[in-house]
Design a protein around this nucleic acid. Sequence first.
DNA 1: CCTCCACTATACAGATCGGTATACATTGGG
DNA 2: CCCAATGTATACCGATCTGTATAGTGGAGG
Lengths: 196, 196
Amino acid sequence: MSTAEGIRRIALTPAARRALEAAGRLFYARGIHAVGVDLIAAEAGVTKKTLYDRFGSKEQIVVEYLAERDERWRTFLAGRLDAERPARERVLTVFDASRAWALENSPKGCSMVNAHAEISDPAHPAYPIITGQKQWMLDLFTGLCADIDPDRADRLGRTLMLLHEGALVAHGLNVFADPIAHARDEAGALLAAAGE
Amino acid sequence: MSTAEGIRRIALTPAARRALEAAGRLFYARGIHAVGVDLIAAEAGVTKKTLYDRFGSKEQIVVEYLAERDERWRTFLAGRLDAERPARERVLTVFDASRAWALENSPKGCSMVNAHAEISDPAHPAYPIITGQKQWMLDLFTGLCADIDPDRADRLGRTLMLLHEGALVAHGLNVFADPIAHARDEAGALLAAAGE
DNA sequence: CCTCCACTATACAGATCGGTATACATTGGG
DNA sequence: CCCAATGTATACCGATCTGTATAGTGGAGG
């Protein structure tokens, strides 16, 4: 349900939680390779010994960072998606949730996309988290569209996916004002014309 | 016209050209911070002395990498955009060009977006190249839409921008097959309904 | 009391980072 | 013919990288 793979297995002690919080903040803001473990330790008020006792390697910290962010986003979205509402409305809710999430968590765009810029190797343990989230979002859109216009669900779902991803990028690069709201409106127009 | 700022000023001697080619290939594939100058020098068959004689710093190599890639893309696109054709068709040509470019140059998505994941500081000399290209693309789409439906040019241009950016991301992350062709078709459908 | 556990503190290893210095070879143009 | 530009080769700098080793502290539970 939540994170596709059973990747998270580390018990987060208080110090480990602080470290993961600091690592996530730094990774997102500066990039993964630009942040060293010494900086993470210092920023979290934790020694490197503790870091390596809890996580074992920097790579594992990266994995935990992405897995937690993925899980948080899915939980955040699930908490706003009311299964009772019609599918058309739920699609708009996805964009609304994305907008709210981006405003307070993602000034620099999607963390998965940004991580993918630095982690190209498909054998990297964090890779399935990245592609998994995108696949999950596509399936979500397509599934909602199946309730609106079953014949065009695949096509509609993919278009919503592109609008959504494009909006996240445009948001991160400040291409124009409030692109996620714009994407929401376009999604609404698209769905208004569908399923009639 | 070509690159917005007058950033490029280095005369590219043969060794410098080889170095820039290697640097670009490595930066794109592995990420900017993950590639050291020693590796660039070795891969290009050039000494570090030559690198620093030509470029002065790693940062400048990064700037040249992005400036050249930006310039190449604009030239590539300009060579395919026939000013004689109607605007609707030219929009589709942009997507066709983007698809062809991505297939042979960008298996990992947009190099500007990927660079932005590692260069967050707006004061970085490469920053205006990144945002400049996105702004240029938005203006291009909006300008074309002004010839189709002047009243909705801004809105249409932004939507095309989102579809295009989303397609590049989806292409880089392999979310589904041939997303840029899908975006092209959706752009066509969008414009068919406009300006009537 | 005693053991386990999470944690701190510090020092260090080996490699790599961006960048510089010295010395020498090759080349083309005035 | 000389000179400047371009290049190679190699050694080095201090800083930082991931990761490890040693030693010790404080609290919770049986």
